[in-house]
Simulated scan of single mutants.
Amino acid sequence: MERQTGKRCPWAKTPLEIAYHDGEWGRPLHDEGALFELLELEGFQAGLSWSLILERRAALREAFAGFDPEKLATWGEEDIQKALAAPGVIRNRSKVHCAVTNAQAFLRVREEFGSFDAYLWGWTEGKQLEGGLERMEDTPAQTELSRALSRDLKKRGFKFVGPVIVYSLMQAAGLVNDHLLSCPWHELCGGGTC
């Protein structure tokens, strides 16, 4: 998509954040691999800045088999140790173990629903929700929907999927359009058209 001019959402400040905002964030996402990667990146981000995650994204992809859930689901302790030792990885044992656990849960959901995409977007009846935000400070950290989805993901065996992380996933994957109304990407990403 052509780069837009105008006042983008103010959280996008660094070159990596701007590229992510303009090229990915808030766009309705249906690719299985990309959804799993976002789920894991949001989990890795817990307690850290999103800017740090974007800086380490390539290293995380490399260390975690491209975030391929089929590969990660088979990992044992040796693979986990190798990932923990990889350069640029967030060295949090719980988060690394979580990637394996979540890959296994992801595959179970995919088997039950036909795809993780169908499961996730089923929570919004396949439609993008409208945030209608005028100011960043109006952005909720979580919603009733993210709390319900968080509870269901946890029941299905997912880890690091609290309601705040889930809401961040919903924003990133475009289930909710939280681009500010003044941001040129708001209209472009609305209704799943971007």
Rank of each mutant, 00 (worst) to 15 (best):
A103E: 09
A58G: 13
Q4M: 14
A103N: 08
G174S: 07
E134I: 12
Y119G: 00
L149T: 02
G174F: 12
A173E: 06
L133G: 05
T139A: 03
G174Q: 10
A12I: 05
L145V: 06
T101E: 05
R135N: 12
R27F: 09
L169D: 09
L120R: 07
S94Q: 15
E42A: 06
N102L: 00
P28L: 15
T124R: 06
L169M: 13
D152A: 02
L84G: 13
L72F: 03
E40Y: 12
P140R: 04
H186W: 14
H30S: 11
G157Y: 08
P87E: 09
S168M: 03
T143L: 00
Q4L: 15
R57W: 09
S51A: 11
T101G: 10
L41G: 00
W75S: 10
L153G: 02
I53H: 01
W121Y: 06
F36D: 11
G192P: 05
C189L: 14
G6S: 09
G6V: 15
L39W: 01
L41R: 08
L35I: 01
L39R: 00
C189D: 14
Q81P: 13
A83E: 07
I165H: 10
G157M: 05
K159Q: 12
T101I: 10
T143K: 01
Q142S: 08
A103R: 03
R108D: 01
R27I: 08
E78N: 12
F158K: 10
F67I: 00
G26F: 13
I18E: 10
M1C: 14
K155T: 09
F44P: 07
E144V: 12
V96H: 03
A148Q: 04
T101D: 10
Q104R: 11
S182D: 14
E77F: 02
A59T: 15
G23K: 12
I80M: 04
P28H: 15
D68V: 05
Q45K: 03
K13I: 11
L133E: 07
K7P: 12
L60Q: 06
G131M: 03
C189E: 14
L29P: 02
R57E: 05
W50S: 01
T193K: 15
K95M: 09
I90G: 02
R110A: 05
L41Y: 04
Q171V: 08
